[in-house]
C-alpha cells in the first residue's frame, strides 16, 4: 500500500512539474504577455529600461504560430492573442497615453480592463500615469482573428503597438509585433 501512495505522490508531482515546463514552452507563442515602458522609443531589440520605477524588460514580439501547442493548433488555430498587464511610465513627467495597433487585413479585437479611466473610442487612458508609476490592475488583450487564407502565409501580421502622448500626439514607444509561421516553406498559392 505504501508504494502506491509514493507512486501516486510522484506521478502528481512530476505531472505538475511537466505542466510548468510545457507552460514555459507554449507561452512563447500563445497569448504572449509582454511589458510596456513609456517613453522607450523604437524597441528594435530586447532591452531592460532602468529609469523611473522598476526595471522593465521590453522586446519586439515575434509570435510563431507553429510553436503553439498541439491542442491549440488542432482546435482553434485561427485566433491568436497578445496581452499585457504592465504599462509603466519610466519618464520624468506624468503622461496620458493613447494606444494604437498598426492595422492590417486581419481583424483585431481589443479587450481593455483597468482600474484606470479609459476611453474606448479613442483608446486613451484619460488619467495621467505618474513617473515611475503604472496603470493599476491592467489587462489588455488583443485578439487576432486570422482568416483561413492567411494561415498559409509565412508572415501573417507585421505591425506593432504604438503608444502616444495623448496630449501632444508625440510617439513615445513602438513595439514591433510579427505573427509568423516558421515551419511554412512556401508563400500561399502553390498547389503541387
Amino acid at each position: 500500500m505504501r508504494y502506491k501512495v509514493i507512486i501516486g505522490f510522484m506521478v502528481a508531482f512530476l505531472l505538475t512539474i511537466y505542466s510548468g515546463a510545457y507552460s514555459a514552452e507554449i507561452r512563447k507563442s500563445e497569448i504572449v504577455h509582454f511589458w510596456v515602458a513609456v517613453p522607450a522609443g523604437n524597441i528594435t531589440h530586447e532591452k531592460i529600461i532602468r529609469d523611473a520605477g522598476p526595471p522593465i524588460r521590453v522586446t519586439p514580439l515575434i509570435i510563431d504560430l507553429d510553436g503553439r501547442g498541439f491542442l491549440k493548433k488542432l482546435l482553434q488555430p485561427n485566433i491568436e492573442a497578445i496581452s499585457t498587464h504592465w504599462i509603466y511610465n519610466v519618464g520624468k513627467r506624468p503622461i496620458n497615453i493613447r494606444l494604437e495597433l498598426i492595422e492590417s487585413d486581419i481583424p483585431i479585437v481589443w479587450e481593455v480592463k483597468a482600474n484606470w479611466p479609459y476611453n474606448s473610442s479613442t483608446r486613451t487612458f484619460t488619467a495621467p500615469i505618474p513617473p515611475g508609476g503604472r496603470i493599476d490592475l491592467l489587462s489588455i488583450d488583443w485578439y487576432f482573428i486570422i482568416p483561413e487564407y492567411y494561415m498559409d502565409e509565412k508572415i501573417i501580421y507585421d505591425g506593432g503597438l504604438l503608444i502616444y502622448d495623448a496630449n501632444s500626439n508625440e510617439l513615445l514607444t513602438f513595439i514591433p509585433i510579427m505573427i509568423i509561421r516558421s515551419y511554412h516553406s512556401y508563400i500561399g498559392g502553390e498547389c503541387c
Binding site: 501516486g8 502528481a12 508531482f13 505531472l15 505538475t16 512539474i17
Partner: peptide
Amino acid sequence: SITRSLRYGFLAGW
C-alpha cells in the same frame, strides 16, 4: 490515502 497522495503531490509540485 492514494487520493491524498495525488492531491499533495500536486501541491508539492506547485
